[in-house]
Amino acid sequence: MTQIRIHGRGGQGNVTLAELIAMASFYDGKFSQAFPSFGVERQGAPVVAFTKIADSFIRDRQQIYTPDYIIILDPSLIKTVPVLEGVKKNTIILINSNKLHKQVCPVYTGKVYCVPVFDIAMKVIGKPIINTAMLGAFAKISGLISLDSARKSIEENLGEKYAKEVVEKNIQALKVAFKEIKK
């Protein structure tokens, strides 16, 4: 089982990102489970969401204590929230940042990818909606979900809530991130 823990702030699309990863891996033929850390939803408050991916139905409902991947949507959380809790030697961390690993998260010596998804979102969507670009970055770096399934997950999930143009822009952000971000 692969476990992904996502840290962000209310309003950043944290929970949606967890759902998108789960949906995409389901479309790839795997079993998955996504859930939020069940807080009172407030804009700006630290939020955690979880995704598990496996080859069989995921029965266990516990939160993620030893993540294989940590995704950090707001780098300011690194100093305020225990985002690194339970890291293993081979945990891979993705941080929304255009800076360098050493500048953003010097305490963690494992594998860190600083991915400029904020810049991509501003360029493609024109708004700081970063979760779909982060989905592209995650797909590229982890190789766990295919680009096509990631696209489908955005169509299905966002298609229910938003206008067509919004969905299209988000798919564009996904694709640009997938293309530009290097593994």
Partner: peptide, 10 residues
């Protein structure tokens, strides 16, 4: 509540 109501699964 939440553990099933808010969880995505197959």
């Amino acid at each position: 509540g939440f553990i099933l109501t808010h969880t995505y699964e197959p």
